[in-house]
Structure formats: structure tokens, C-alpha cells
């Protein structure tokens, strides 16, 4: 069967990697157990040994493995990022996903034959920006920021000369990624350099009468009535007072799901679809990858419109789905 679009799936653990491969991922992406990747959560990610084993498992089943080294090294502490690149190359990764200029420069000089993808964390959102990375660092693919409409994606792709990968499912930040300091403003730990937004050790909940208050550091992010589901206190999904009224100023707790837009994205020239969620469970990975595999196979066989699997709503953040910035009215 001809491939409709490459399906790029998250693996927070070696077990999740095997689940994703078995469920039909074309590619799996993962990271090392440290601050060199943007999902640096306790209990997640791969040792070097894990990665070697995971790559062997995936390659034996014609599935590729990308390694995210997509945070921004701290001044005076470049070592972990250099080692991450060197080890990804040594383990046989099919590509590294990078954001920082210094890391890109290092990978380009030291491992010219290792395929380089530009992470969403680099926030390259224009043909000019993408061509800069292509010309300076030979990137083969860009993961597009989650701030573009489908029309903008289409207009951009023809002008860059590199493959485009777009987010199609999962958690949705409303700020330009890699350039959002809200979490560090509240906690002191940086998504950019520590690889963690809203770190669990800074999260707390307390009762306030019959309501539940969620906090990040000393900041109150939300307050829920007893019949409301309590979302994780991510700064851009918080409820704040605007003109004195409580409001989800930035974004409601919703998850991205663009299955109805897949044909448009393919027509726009997109190469690959990315599913977010290395921090999510194996069940999430199995559910989402299986559903997307079925949809893509149906589309490849000419189905129209794309079938919409109900199972996905159950695993979406906040149990609600959005097209995000792909729909123009979102802005």
C-alpha cells in the first residue's frame, strides 16, 4: 500500500516505543533521560541502552526512530547536549530533532551525515526562517510551529525545499514554543533549558471550601467546582481574571485533533504527521496510533471524508478537541 502520510509517534518509554511500532507507526520519536529534550519528566525517556534496543526493535519492523535533542543548553554546560548528539548517532538514530543554534552547529560539524530535523522549539514559522536553517545547517525537515493555518502551511511548504512535519493530535500550547517563559516565570525551571513545562514538583492542589485549587509554584492557575474535571495546571491553560472576570484567557483545556483536515494537509504538501504525547501512557499511544493508522490506511484507499474514530475524544486533553491554529478563527 502506498503511504498516505508518514505517521510520527511519541515514545516516552521503551515499552511505549514497542506499542507504537506494533500499532503501525512509521516513525517513533524519543529522548534521553535528561534535560536535553523537551519532555524531561520523572520516569520518562531512554537510557543509551534503551535507545539501542528500541532502534533494533523498530528497524526490524521497518520503523524509523528520531531522537529529540531539542532544548537549549545552559551557558557553560554544553556537555550533555554534545553527548546526546554523539550517542544518538552512535546508536543508529535515523534523525535528530534540534532547536538550538549551538547544538545545530555542533551536529552539522561533527555528524554531517546524521539527518537533522528542525524542532518545533526553534519556532521557524516562515519560508525565510526555514531556509536560513536549511542553508546554515542542512536541515532535511522542519516541524512546523503550531501557530499556522492550513493555508499558511500550504503557502510555506513550496518555498522551503525541506520536508514539513505537522502536529495533528495531542496537547496544544497556545504560545510559540521554545519562546514561552510563563512556566519559568512561575517556577524558576525552564521549558527551554530544563525541558519541562509546569514541573510536577511545583504543582500543588488544595481544597477551598467545596472547590479545588490548582497551583504552579505560588501562582493560582485554576479553581474548579466539584462537578468540573480538574485539568493539570499548565500556565497557558489556566483560568485568570480579565477585566475582573474569570476566563480561559489563553486557551481552554482542549486537545488538538485534525483528522478532518488530513486531506487538506496532504494537499498542502505535508510529509509527516506528528502525534504529541511522550508524557502520556502506553494506552494513549496504543489508542491514538491505532486510530491514526486506520484513518491513514482508509485515506490511502480513497476513503473520503476521513473516518473519525470516537476513541480519540476520550484521550484528548480536557476531553475536548480543537483544530487550533489550523482554523483561522482561532486567532
Amino acid at each position: 500500500m502506498t503511504r498516505y502520510l508518514e505517521l510520527v509517534c511519541p515514545a516516552g518509554t521503551p515499552a511505549a516505543l514497542r506499542v507504537a511500532v506494533d500499532a503501525g507507526a512509521d516513525t517513533v520519536y524519543c529522548g534521553f533521560q535528561d534535560c536535553t529534550n523537551a519532555r524531561n519528566y520523572p520516569g520518562l525517556n531512554f537510557t543509551r541502552e534503551d535507545l539501542r534496543g528500541g532502534i533494533a526493535y523498530a528497524h526490524a519492523r521497518s520503523c524509523r526512530v528520531f531522537v529529540a535533542v531539542n532544548t537549549f543548553p545552559r551557558a557553560g554546560d554544553f556537555g550533555p547536549w554534545q553527548r546526546a548528539i554523539d550517542d544518538a548517532a552512535a546508536c543508529g538514530a535515523d534523525a535528530v530533532i534540534l532547536a538550538d543554534l549551538g547544538v545545530l552547529d555542533y551536529a552539522t560539524c561533527r555528524h554531517p551525515n546524521l539527518r537533522r530535523h528542525l524542532s518545533v522549539q526553534a519556532a521557524a514559522a516562515s519560508p525565510l526562517g526555514i531556509r536560513f536553517y536549511r542553508d546554515a545547517f542542512g536541515i532535511s525537515r522542519v516541524v512546523l510551529p503550531r501557530v499556522l493555518s492550513v493555508e499558511e502551511v500550504a503557502a510555506l511548504i513550496g518555498q522551503t525545499g525541506v520536508e514539513a512535519e505537522v502536529f495533528t493530535f495531542g496537547s496544544l500550547g497556545t504560545m510559540v514554543e521554545g519562546r514561552c517563559f510563563l512556566s519559568s516565570y512561575m517556577t524558576g525551571r525552564s521549558p527551554s533549558s530544563d525541558g519541562v513545562c509546569a514541573p510536577a514538583e511545583c504543582v500543588s492542589y488544595r481544597e477551598d471550601g467545596d472547590r479545588l485549587v490548582s497551583c504552579l509554584g505560588d501562582v493560582m492557575i485554576n479553581r474548579f467546582a466539584s462537578d468540573e474535571p480538574a485539568a493539570y495546571p499548565t500556565p497557558c491553560k489556566g483560568r485568570f481574571l480579565v477585566h475582573g472576570r474569570p476566563s480561559y484567557l489563553f486557551e481552554e483545556p482542549t486537545g488538538l485533533n485534525v483528522i478532518p483536515l488530513l486531506a487538506e494537509l496532504k494537499a498542502a504538501g505535508v510529509t509527516a504527521l506528528k502525534i504529541e504525547g511522550r508524557q502520556r501512557s502506553r494506552t494513549y499511544v496504543a489508542t491514538v496510533v491505532t486510530a491514526f493508522r486506520r484513518v491513514l490506511d482508509a485515506l490511502a484507499e480513497g476513503a473520503s471524508p476521513a473516518p473519525m474514530p470516537d476513541v480519540l475524544r476520550a484521550v484528548a486533553e480536557g476531553g475536548r478537541e480543537t483544530f487550533g491554529a489550523y482554523a483561522k478563527g482561532w486567532r
Binding site: 501557530v147 499556522l148 497556545t174 504560545m175 510559540v176 519562546r179 514561552c180 517563559f181 510563563l182 516565570y185 497557558c236 480579565v242 477585566h243 476566563s247 484567557l249 489563553f250 486557551e251 491554529a325 483561522k328 478563527g329 482561532w330 486567532r331
Partner: peptide, 20 residues
């Protein structure tokens, strides 16, 4: 201090408007 930038206009959103 500038802390974040978005494509979404929060000022417009705070006034129940769209960016366009």
C-alpha cells in the same frame, strides 16, 4: 518583561473579538 508571543491575540480575545 516579555514572556511569550503567540499568533493568537489575547487582547482581542479578552474583548470577545478575533485577531482579524
Amino acid at each position: 518583561q516579555p514572556l511569550a508571543i503567540s499568533q493568537r491575540c489575547y487582547h482581542a480575545r479578552a474583548h470577545d473579538l478575533h485577531k482579524d
